[in-house]
């Protein structure tokens, strides 16, 4: 269970990051990733994450874990981004 769970969480985090890096507000990259390919890749990674999680647990539980984890990652990414922006260029 642990291996599938870890894989699923990593894939979901990568999928969220791929979507996040395609928006114009991100600060990790000098230019955002091309929107369409990055979001498509994000969707594929998220789908793969759900499949991996479903190997580790009941499907309904896999969906709940997937949604909970993606919520957490998607809340964390913009805040980490803001901290990076603050570190690089504090507001005047």
């Amino acid at each position: 269970m642990a291996a599938w769970l870890t894989l699923g969480m990593l894939l979901a985090a990568a999928g969220c990051a791929s979507c996040h890096l395609s928006v114009r507000h991100q600060h990790w990259l000098t230019r955002p990733l091309p929107a369409r390919p990055a979001r498509l890749a994000g969707a594929v990674l998220l789908a793969a994450a759900l499949v991996a999680l479903a190997q580790a647990m009941q499907v309904v539980v896999a969906v709940f874990v997937f949604v909970t984890w993606t919520m957490l990652v998607c809340v964390a990414l913009p805040h980490a981004d803001a901290l990076l922006a603050l570190y690089r260029k504090p507001p005047q």
Binding site: H20, V23, H25, Q26, C74, L77, P78, H79, D81, A82, A85, L86, P91, Q92
Partner: peptide
């Protein structure tokens, strides 16, 4: 504004 976290004054 999705994912937007604008750090400014």
């Amino acid at each position: 504004d999705f994912f937007a976290m604008r750090i400014s004054a």
